[in-house]
């Protein structure tokens, strides 16, 4: 008996190929059952995300099952990879731990694999071996996430800003964010803060229509561009992203606004040229980060995650050996 995985991912196939092969979440169960019925696999499960499509199976004839699975996937062979037995198990476990993801250590993949397994299981495509393989994979992922730093520290500018905000403010719910100037990064940053629960969002832009549209997307309130200094004392987090050629927030302007504040102020300046004078960061209880700071932290976090890969593999090795022992006892060579 052999365990087998055949598939493609973001490293082996471009998005044009992956999107052609992608299977909707609602069809994963049917696809797994069809795979089992048409390829001679005794157990089967199909995983499909935006970055990978993989079929997992248990078979008594690995070569025949491999040919059939390749026909099922129907993509040029140079996009596909195939792993068997120990490598197959290790691959799945590394996938669920986020070690094989485009963004190293991301956690979304665990939910996607759980969904794929649940669909295959509900469709009757899995059996005792794949059930154990996936259950052990989920347990391994939980262990890895809680005991290593593989998922620690954000790796995108927006999420780094959220991480920082959570280390400044006790609770984001009562915080108000002001977005001065709209753009792609300010939008993703504001969205990330909103997802993490910030209470209010004020948006101002030189284009009132754009401000209203942006505010509507965020569930916030648009304010006039000229009025933003009046609202400044009321906000806790300010995202500046205007095209102004000079700082619009200076230490001299900011200092009097801070005298009556009782909370810290977090300034996120993602514009180039910078909109916030660097001296503002020297003021007490003001935390200023520009785009370079945020990108540097994201890169450092990613580097730290990369340093954790060996640690994760070491922790997985013991579990892998135990699974292999169980499999060999069940199906002696």
């Amino acid at each position: 008996m052999n365990l087998l995985v055949i598939g493609l991912n973001h490293r082996t196939a471009p998005v044009e190929v992956r999107e052609r092969l992608a299977i909707a979440r609602s069809r994963l169960g049917d696809a797994s059952r069809e795979l089992r019925e048409t390829t001679g696999l005794q157990e089967a499960a199909v995983l499909s995300t935006c970055n990978r499509v993989e079929v997992y199976g248990l078979t008594a004839d690995a070569d025949a099952a491999s040919r059939a699975a390749r026909q099922f996937l129907a993509v040029p062979p140079h996009h596909l990879y195939e792993l068997r037995d120990r490598e197959c198990v290790q691959h799945l476990w590394e996938v669920v731990c986020g070690l094989d993801s485009m963004v190293l250590g991301e956690t979304e993949i665990l939910g996607q694999v759980k969904d794929a397994y649940a669909a295959a299981h509900a469709a009757g495509a899995t059996g005792p071996v794949l059930n154990r393989l996936f259950q052990k994979a989920f347990a391994a992922a939980k262990h890895i996430r809680t005991t290593t730093a593989i998922a620690r520290g954000a790796t995108s500018v927006g999420n780094v800003a959220v991480d920082l905000a959570e280390k400044i403010f006790r609770d984001l719910a009562p915080c108000t964010v002001m977005v001065v100037g709209t753009g792609e990064i300010s939008e993703t940053t504001a969205k990330a803060l909103r997802r993490r629960g910030v209470g209010g969002i004020l948006v101002c832009s030189r284009s009132p229509d754009r401000a209203r549209e942006f505010a509507a997307q965020m569930g916030g309130q648009a304010i006039s561009y000229n009025d933003w200094p009046e609202h400044f004392p009321l906000v806790d987090i300010v995202i500046t992203a205007t095209g102004a050629p000079h700082p619009i927030v200076t230490a001299d302007k900011l200092r009097p606004l801070l005298t009556h504040r009782r909370r810290p102020l977090f300034l996120i300046d993602i514009s180039v040229p910078r909109n916030v004078e660097a001296a503002c960061g020297d003021l007490e209880d003001v935390f200023l980060y520009d785009i370079d700071d945020l990108q540097q932290i994201a890169q450092n976090n990613l580097a730290a995650r990369e340093r954790e890969i060996a640690n994760c593999r070491r922790l997985l090795a013991d579990r892998l050996a135990r699974f292999e022992q169980w499999f060999t006892q069940r199906y002696p060579a």
Binding site: R152, G153, I168, R170, P264
Partner: peptide
């Protein structure tokens, strides 16, 4: 940084 709570807290 990741182990310590928020400064406000």
């Amino acid at each position: 940084f990741f182990l310590l709570p928020a400064i406000e807290h």
